[in-house]
């Protein structure tokens, strides 16, 4: 068990802009910390620097309070699961799992015990004599996890481990993986570009874009109180509506946008001209415009909100759910929403 910390860590490839630009990040002990961001945002580079596979241009990595920046991966007592699972194709499942134990020169009997234990936890005992190519995607993933597990690491580093699974299998794998992490209690850093994975699994999420952390917080904080317009529009599907007003952007989630007639308490109204409606089974999405700006409203299918395309309605958002951003910087304005005068 250990805390992972990076201090002003930076990575530059060639002359281009920094892939990772001075990130300060600290995990809590035993935490499931997700690095979330679009592809090319630097999240995998950050993970590889923590793992020791990529030397940082400047800054430090600390594991358990010890600076490990100059140490090779093998000296960091970490386990990593690659997106490809990186199973050794020439070895049986048993030897794949025992590989880190052989590196640690553990006695044979103890190796067997540990492999059996890890294989038991992940339910892969029947395949121990097979080669990786004879396994399905889900089985390979579990072999990779078992191999990470046996060495009793300080930290798990997971790089998009679910992206090679089909959609159905992914949901159950998410559940298994989180349950497994809770059971083991090892600090875990999990890289993904999938917001559903991040929201569903993370204790905390670090949203990364262009090499910097835009916001670090619990899934609820990130979703409800986004620090800037990037976070506000990266999370949520469909993302937060942003309506420009002077030098401000007024943000509100599609599910908080509903007819003014049914609203109570303090609220702000918007004219909503409906263009198109999408029926998605459990919910409805209504696309339209307020003034020149495109916005979306979302209703659960149980809500009885009749709208017709081509007509304009008066919609409202509770004042407490309005998020105000600076239009120039994209940053959230501190304090509550000012009373808005809307045209």
């Amino acid at each position: 068990m250990a805390v992972i910390e990076t201090r002003a860590i930076t990575k530059r490839f060639g002359d281009g802009p920094a892939a990772v630009d001075g990130i300060d990040l600290a995990s809590a002990d035993g935490e499931f910390l997700v690095l979330l961001g679009p592809s090319g945002c630097g999240k995998t580079t950050l993970l590889r620097m923590i793992g020791g596979l990529e030397p940082p241009t400047s800054g430090d990595v600390l594991i358990g309070g010890r600076v490990v920046t100059g140490l090779p991966p093998r000296a960091r007592k970490i386990a990593m699961v690659f997106q490809s699972y990186a199973l050794y194709p020439h070895m049986s499942v048993y030897n794949n799992i025992a590989f880190p134990l052989k590196a640690a020169k553990l006695p044979k009997a103890e190796q067997e015990k540990k492999v059996a234990w890890a294989a038991g936890i992940l339910g892969i005992d029947p395949y121990l004599q097979r080669k990786p190519r004879q396994l399905s995607g889900g089985q390979r993933q579990r072999v990779a996890l078992a191999r990470a597990l046996v060495r009793d690491p300080n930290v798990f580093l997971l790089d998009e481990p679910l992206s090679n699974l089909d959609a159905q299998r992914r949901a159950s794998a998410r559940d298994e993986l989180q349950g497994f992490q809770r059971q083991i209690g090892t600090t875990t850093i999990y890289v993904t570009h999938d917001q559903v994975e991040a929201m569903g699994m993370g204790d905390r999420i670090a949203v990364i874009n262009q090499g910097t952390i835009r916001q670090l917080g619990t899934p609820r904080e990130i979703y409800d109180e986004p620090a800037d317009t990037f976070v506000a529009t990266f999370l949520g599907s469909p993302p937060m509506n942003l309506v420009p007003r002077d030098d401000l952007l007024i943000g509100f989630r599609p599910e908080q946008f509903s007819p003014a007639a049914g609203a109570s308490g303090a609220f702000t109204t918007f004219p909503f001209h409906v263009h198109r409606e999408e029926y998605l089974g459990a919910e409805r999405l209504v696309y339209g415009e307020t003034g020149p700006t495109k916005v979306v409203a979302r209703f659960p299918i149980t809500a009885d909100v009749p709208v017709e395309t081509g007509r304009t309605y008066e919609f409202a958002v509770p004042d407490g759910d309005l998020k105000i951003f600076d239009a120039a910087s994209g940053l959230r304005r501190p304090g509550g929403a000012p009373k808005l005068v809307l045209r």
């Binding site: 793992g51 020791g52 596979l53 090779p72 991966p73 093998r74 970490i78 386990a79 990593m80 690659f82 490809s84 990186a86 199973l87 050794y88 194709p89 590989f99 880190p100 590196a103 640690a104 191999r147 060495r151």
Partner: peptide, 10 residues
């Protein structure tokens, strides 16, 4: 990947 994995593995 497998080479990096082996470096991680010790």
């Amino acid at each position: 990947d497998i080479e990096e994995q082996a470096m991680i593995d010790g």
